[in-house]
């Protein structure tokens, strides 16, 4: 068990190192000059003072050093929890900007992942035993899971907010409100949250429901189900076993899907101008703010890796076969 997790941990660390290095490289080798963008904001100054500003900023952000030094600096400040200063945010620390956006993204991700997983699996299990459900609503599941996140988000925002005006069109809360601990602000927050949540939830729901339904049918036809049926075990017991065993691949599926889901959340936020990380990525790209971009990606990488690690641990707890294999049982 120790060795297993040790190996896993090492894999995750290597993955992190590689991903972070790529993350460091991409903005530096991308076309475009963020300092020029920044200096261009201050219009009406002489070219001499402009040159002075460029030098000043290059120095401030450490961009005038040789690349290897920049790389080492990157890691050393990273280990100190320092992701640099945002150009777009006029020198606000990147960490601070990320921390302001993270609650919004998590508020979308966590409920939509957990609820869609739960609802999709329950529904899929139900569909596996009710022919009419299988025939009517399952096709809907196929359509949902095949829908790109962005597309569903656009449809939802067009129908439910632009046309029917049930939900607000964009933003995290109304422009006329200040974040306060009031009931008014809270309901407004929820109203803005519903649509981006729904577009994430619905797409994932379709995928889980179909996966579960197919897994259950597979398990119900497996040898241990047939044996139980031959010994006269009631349907209840056979279904219970099939459901438990069908759940296991769904947990692995969750680990595999996490990256896709996070990407889905990012584009959904852009569609709804929802002030989470996705929205921030969008701003960072528009303003060629590569410290910010780099910081957000790094944050997402760590988040996804961490979540994967948790799913790995959960899987070992719920599937006895992995535990047996770790003890070196005969297969």
């Amino acid at each position: 068990m120790r060795r297993y997790f040790g190996r896993k941990l090492l894999t995750y660390l290597i993955t992190f190192f590689v991903a972070a290095t790529i993350d460091w490289m991409i903005p530096r080798f991308m076309p475009g000059d963020p300092i020029a963008v920044l200096v261009a904001k201050t219009n009406g100054i002489s070219s001499q003072s402009a040159q002075y500003l460029v030098d000043y900023y290059n120095n401030l952000f450490g961009l005038n050093k040789p690349l290897p030094v920049q790389f080492l600096n990157f890691w050393s400040s990273l280990l100190h929890g320092n992701l640099g200063l945002s150009i777009y945010g006029d020198g606000t620390p990147v960490t601070q900007m990320i921390m302001a956006a993270v609650p919004y993204t998590l508020a979308l991700l966590i409920p939509s992942i957990l609820l869609s997983w739960w609802a999709g699996n329950s529904f899929g299990a139900l569909a596996a035993r009710r022919r009419w459900l299988d025939n009517t609503i399952l096709p809907v599941g196929y359509v949902l899971t095949a829908t790109p996140y962005m597309w569903l988000a656009i449809v939802l925002s067009f129908v439910l907010s632009f046309s029917l005006r049930i939900f607000p069109l964009s933003g995290g809360y109304g422009f006329n409100l200040e974040p306060t601990l009031t009931w008014l602000f809270f309901t407004d927050l929820v109203a803005h949250w519903v649509l981006p949540f729904m577009s994430l939830f619905l797409v994932m729901f379709g995928g889980w429901a179909i996966g579960m339904r197919n897994m259950i049918i597979y398990e119900l036809e497996s040898d241990y189900s047939r044996y139980l049926a031959a010994l006269g075990a009631p349907q209840g017991l056979i279904r219970k076993y099939a459901f438990r065993n069908a759940m296991l691949p769904q947990i692995t599926g969750l680990a595999l899907q996490l990256g896709v889901i996070v990407a889905g959340a990012l584009v959904t936020e852009i569609v709804f101008s929802y002030p989470g990380l996705g929205h921030l990525v969008f701003q960072a790209i528009e303003n060629e703010d590569y410290f910010l971009l780099q910081g957000i990606f790094l944050f997402i990488i760590v988040g996804v890796l961490l979540a994967n690690f948790i799913v790995d641990i959960v899987y070992v707890i719920v599937d006895p076969r992995t535990r047996v294999a770790m003890r070196g049982g005969t297969a």
């Binding site: 497996s222 040898d223 241990y224 047939r226 044996y227 139980l228 031959a230 010994l231 006269g232 009631p234 076993y241 438990r244 065993n245 296991l248 599937d319 006895p320 076969r321």
Partner: peptide, 23 residues
Amino acid sequence: MNEFRFRDVSVIPQYAMSAMNPT
């Protein structure tokens, strides 16, 4: 048939190797 299975008629299936729930 359920009430007869196991008590009156029982089977050792052809697939005995995989007849038990693995989990």
